[in-house]
């Protein structure tokens, strides 16, 4: 930072962001900006890809053809999100293979929510409604983030996530209006997914790191606690509308705050899952690693064939 040239460039860079102009891959950027973006975008990409697993778990067992087709399409969308996000990340000078390597070695994180099991059909509804719902609240502000490729990817992703959210809610509504067994299945799913969904917004503001810098770069616009509150305020009436009960005895409308008060989050559970000891961390990682390992010969073959073809063209 002693270099005066560097200081000027950095100032210009920050000013550009402040003016709401986008940073593009070829633009100069501080190393810390690059690293922070690689971390966040890849973490997001990994979440999309790992997120395919708990939902993919129900494709073969979906209860109707219409639901099966919709679930396949949803999981396919998530793969697509992974693809655009890896591509956005690659513009920062890191390869997809390196990013996978970081995921497989446990160096890179992905959203902890996907370390919970999907044990009934209602979990597919709950994931769409709550998990995609929470993801949208986290991600809508990113449509205006400073890094151009990320912002553009997020616009497309958010559109599809809202579709997923509505579809998930519709699954829950159908169950909640169904037989007593179906309603119980929906309530049970809400009971299991509610608290992990609240944890998706991350630790409380008091304990959250990196926030200030991220705000400046528009990687974050609101704090974890603000986003969590927004999610709760939005979701509670949706649960009421279909006659499901949020599993929180302390949940209460606060007239003065015009918001819901809610009970304490079990942060021990949160850290346990983040640190790799959730119910399915091992299964998810094993599934990804073995897909990658078992696919190696396929990727090698594709590369080898492409090289042979290119060589043949040259000869001609």
């Amino acid at each position: 930072m002693n270099d005066p040239q560097q200081a000027i460039r950095e100032k210009q860079f920050e000013a550009k962001i402040a003016r709401d102009e986008k940073i593009e891959p070829k633009d100069w950027m501080p190393e810390k900006y690059r690293q922070t973006h690689i971390r966040q975008i890849s973490q997001h990409a990994h979440s999309e890809v790992v997120g395919m697993l708990p939902e993919g778990n129900w494709i073969t067992r979906a209860p109707t053809l219409r639901r099966k087709v919709a679930l396949l399409a949803k999981v396919q969308d998530e793969a697509g999100h992974g693809l655009y996000l890896y591509a956005a990340c690659e513009t920062l000078g890191v390869s997809r293979d390196e990013l996978y390597e970081q995921l497989h070695s446990g160096k890179a994180k992905y959203s902890s929510i996907f370390n919970y099991p999907t044990i009934t059909w209602a979990d597919i509804g709950a994931i769409g409604w709550l998990v995609d719902g929470a993801a949208i609240i986290n991600q809508v502000p990113l449509c205006n983030t400073s890094y151009g490729p990320y912002a553009r990817a997020m616009i497309r992703v958010c559109k599809e996530e809202s579709f997923h959210q509505r579809q998930g809610y519709e699954i829950m509504m159908k169950l909640a209006n169904g037989t007593p067994e179906q309603k119980a299945m929906a309530q049970d799913a809400l009971n299991r997914w509610w608290w992990p969904s609240l944890m998706m917004f991350g630790p409380t503001d008091a304990e959250s790191v990196h926030t200030e810098q991220s705000m400046k770069w528009k990687l974050k616009r609101k704090s974890n606690d603000e986003l969590r509150q927004q999610f709760i305020d939005q979701t509670v009436p949706q649960a009421e509308l279909i006659g499901l009960t949020i599993p929180d005895p302390d949940l209460k409308w606060n007239e003065a705050r015009q918001s819901y008060d809610f009970g304490p989050i079990d942060w021990d559970e949160f850290w346990q899952v983040v640190k790799g000891h959730g119910p399915c961390n091992k299964e998810r990682m094993n599934a990804r690693v073995s897909a990658w390992k078992e696919g190696e010969w396929v990727r090698d073959a594709a590369m080898c064939y492409a090289e042979k073809k290119a060589a043949k063209k040259e000869v001609v």
Binding site: M52, G82, A291
Partner: peptide, 16 residues
Amino acid sequence: ELCGHGPSLETDIACT
């Protein structure tokens, strides 16, 4: 059955 378990994201998307 393969969704999420294929050799690459591209083949996963194609098989889906």
